[in-house]
Nucleic acid binder design. Structure first.
Length: 749
DNA sequence: ACCTCAAACATTTTT
DNA sequence: TGTTTGAGGT
């Protein structure tokens, strides 16, 4: 266990070995930051500090999971088990559930995601009969969120003229009212939104010194990763938690601060030094990740920012190849070029798809890229955009689960009270809602006591409401004694959702049905996971809102090209990186033209993009881009001019002389089906292809070869057609159950 | 109450 | 361009 230290440079070692007292580590891109953090925690554990006393805050749940695994590898496995490691949001949600009785919420509170809070804002605006042109739900929601991130509640807001003034000028005089009602409705629904998870934690500590002391004593050691992206409320909470022992270690890089739109504040790094005057500071400046060309190019870009902490990132790595800057004529040509280049590299050098990443500024850009990858048969996976848990069919089902666990959850109730349709229409819901607001009770309460709240509803509808009530009550009763899977399966079937989706044989319908099954499988795994304990639905549903699709790793996602926004790529690295859409008004974004500050943030974002690359970096832009149904002329990004030319090589695509002839968009190569998300469409096509070819030839005893697991033998085949599964025993990987339509199996004679 | 279709609308980045 | 909304018919 001692030898892990030898692999570290002297500055890294210092950061690992310095355990007590305030410590700030400025870690340049690719400087082995994750390694330092994991070694540091491992070292603490090996030095008789109990994992129970450590709080480690990361930026994503995935990062936490990976670090935990690595720590397990360098200490004894059980040691890290009681370590509190995760995102601010998930760790604080955990505390809030434990201490719920102290802040007037039940422990089974619901977490509203962005969509939920937006929908709540929308209904409030509607109820107040405000003009939704002036009160745009998104704008209002963002403003509420931003106020919360600055620790300003509606009560405070109304007392601050400079804030109310801003909204008066924008003709949103009633904003304060909306905010106030929003708070009240969340409370009534026993729901917390993302920002509340932080806000309420702070309040909890502020108002209950005994609880604060409890956690100060528990978390004797606090470690925060990506410190440059913490916001004001997070800063306040940490300051409180660390006040007793001041064993706080923050790790970050001001040059990679890219979340100020979410309230992140680089100022926190500077505050650290005044808050803990006897701090120690280490700078990790040696880059181990990228070639010298890439490191130097990144440096030449970031030096254009005025606001930054001085540091010199350098590397011993070889120069490597130059960064390629490519000019193309259109976004579709850009896509084709990326796909071709990947193909080329793969034929020259032995590389996996997973060594490639394509990064972009906005999610919408993924489309053109997808199309070209698909045509070249290059497997890819899109992160972000519509994540699994945000799909309609999943959210519908989750709404039933959420309502079963927390009957006050208004957003869930509204979502499913008439899905699948059971004859309870908008007028009925409006009546219930009106009464609920009048008597200050939940909608569930009003629909359970129609007469008590003097609601005029005819006999037929009453019966429908009563049936709905019985249905949900059944779920609630079951959920107390049965495990999560049993309840979930019952809900899926007895609501009719299962039958409804199973009958829809359109491609998108099939995908939806599969997604539902995938969710049920996830719940099954969850119930099987922890021994003999009864795993309740409420346990499963707890933090689903906090999951992103990076958290769910699928076996099929192995060896695929990664497509994601630059924001999502933070902390990751790839051998080959393509940054597409290097155009003015796209990157930097048109919205960042207003201020120097936001332009500098865009530049940091570009810095992050460049420094993701290990071996090679390709930057591309298109002269015309298809947007909102028409072609728009674009200019190359100013950032391209900022890169020192010594490190770049410029290229153009061959079609440069095809003057003003725009490539035709082919929408013809696929039969035009109604409205199908092209992403869903793609997945389906590939599945059908594979299943049609291979499914029927498999028998028990057949020898097969799998792209990842190697050679194995079919032990058992289950299910029919689309859902056929095989249990296969692989020589090197043991027994696996595979869905045949996914598994790429080759039959060996 | 529900279904269908056409017009209007919309694009930063996310826990 | 894809998605959401609202009007109008059943």
């Amino acid at each position: 266990m001692k030898n892990y230290l030898q692999e570290l440079n002297s500055e890294q070692q210092k950061a690992v070995l310095h355990i007590d007292g305030p410590l700030i580590v400025i870690a340049g891109a690719g400087s082995g930051k994750t390694r330092v953090i994991t070694c540091r925690i491992a070292n603490m554990l090996n030095n008789k500090i109990s994992a129970y006393n450590i709080l480690a805050l990361t930026f994503t749940n995935k990062a936490a999971k990976e670090m935990r695994n690595r720590i397990d590898q360098i200490t004894q496995p059980y040691k890290a088990a009681s370590l509190w490691m995760g995102t601010f949001h998930s760790m604080f949600a955990k505390i809030l559930r434990i201490e719920s009785n102290r802040f007037n919420y039940p422990s089974n509170f619901t977490i509203y995601d962005t969509e939920d809070s937006k929908s709540l804002v929308k209904s409030i605006i509607k109820e107040l009969e405000l003009d939704k042109e002036i009160y745009k739900p998104n704008v209002v929601r963002n403003r509420i969120s931003s106020l919360k991130n600055h620790f300003i509640k509606s009560k405070d807001y109304n007392q601050r003229p400079e804030l109310t003034q801003t909204d008066k000028i924008a003709k949103r005089d009633d904003f304060g009212r909306i905010y106030q009602i929003y708070e009240k409705r969340c409370q009534k629904s026993s729901a917390l939104d993302f920002d509340d998870l932080l806000l309420k934690t702070y309040e909890l500590f502020e108002e209950n010194p005994d609880i604060l002391l409890k956690y100060q004593e528990k978390f004797k050691y606090i470690l925060i990763d990506e410190y440059q992206d913490t916001n004001f409320v997070q800063y306040l909470i940490i300051k409180k938690l660390a006040a007793l022992y001041e064993n706080i270690c923050v790790v970050g890089d001001d040059a990679q601060s890219i979340y100020s739109f979410r309230g992140a504040n680089i100022q926190n790094i500077l505050n650290f030094k005044t808050d803990y005057p006897d701090f120690k500071e280490y700078k990790l400046e040696q880059n181990y990740r990228s070639t010298a060309n890439i490191v130097n190019a990144a440096n030449s870009v970031i030096k254009n920012n005025e606001k930054q902490i001085y540091k010199e990132v350098w590397t011993k790595n070889e120069n490597g190849e130059k960064i390629i800057i490519i000019k193309t004529n259109s976004d579709s040509e850009e896509g084709r070029l990326v796909a071709n280049t990947i193909d080329e590299i793969k034929t020259k050098i032995q590389t996996d798809n997973s060594d490639f990443a394509i990064l972009y500024r906005t999610n919408a850009q993924s489309r053109a890229i997808e199309e070209s990858l698909r045509r070249k048969n290059i497997n890819y996976k899109i992160y972000g955009g519509l994540s699994f848990y945000q799909r309609k069919e999943i959210k519908d089902l989750l709404a039933y689960f959420r309502l079963t666990v927390n009957i006050n959850d208004e957003e869930s109730l509204k979502r499913i009270i008439n899905y699948p349709s059971r004859g309870i229409g908008t007028t009925t819901i409006q009546k219930l809602n009106l009464a609920a607001n009048k008597y200050d009770v939940s909608i569930w309460e009003t629909l359970s006591n129609i007469d008590k709240y003097e609601i005029k509803i005819n006999k037929g509808t009453r019966e429908k409401l009563s049936n709905f009530q019985i249905l949900i009550n059944n779920f609630i009763n079951n959920s107390k004694t049965k495990d999560a899977y049993e309840v979930a399966e019952d809900i899926t079937k007895s609501t009719g959702i299962y039958g409804l989706l199973n009958n829809d044989k359109s491609p998108e319908g099939i995908t939806r049905f599969e997604n539902i099954q995938e969710l049920l499988n996830a719940i099954k795994n969850f119930t099987n996971s922890s021994g003999n304990n009864l795993n309740l639905l409420s346990d499963f549903i707890e933090d689903v809102a906090l999951l992103t699709d990076q958290d769910q790793e699928n076996e099929e996602d192995f060896n695929k090209v990664t497509l994601m926004t630059i924001h999502a790529a933070k902390g990751l690295e790839f051998k080959y990186v393509f940054v597409v859409g290097m155009e003015e008004n796209l990157f930097p974004s048109i919205l960042s033209n207003e201020s120097q500050e936001s332009l500098e943030e865009e530049r940091r974002l570009f810095y992050v993009a460049i420094t993701r690359a290990e071996k090679r970096l390709f930057l591309s832009y298109a002269n015309t881009r298809f947007k909102w149904g028409q072609y728009i002329d674009t200019d190359p990004s100013r950032f391209l001019l900022e890169i020192d030319e010594r490190f770049t090589e410029k290229k153009e695509t061959e079609a440069k002389n095809h003057y003003k002839i725009f490539p035709k968009r082919k929408t013809t190569f696929q039969p035009k089906q109604k409205k199908i998300n092209s992403r869903l469409k793609k997945i389906n096509l590939s599945k059908l292809e594979v299943s049609g070819k291979q499914v029927f030839d498999l028998n028990v005893g057949t020898k097969v070869k799998h792209s990842i697991f190697g050679i194995g033998k079919v032990m058992k085949i289950d299910g029919e057609n689309q859902n056929q599964k095989a249990i296969i025993f692989f020589n090197d990987h043991g027994q696996k159950q595979l869905l045949l339509k996914f598994a790429k199996l080759e039959i060996i004679k």
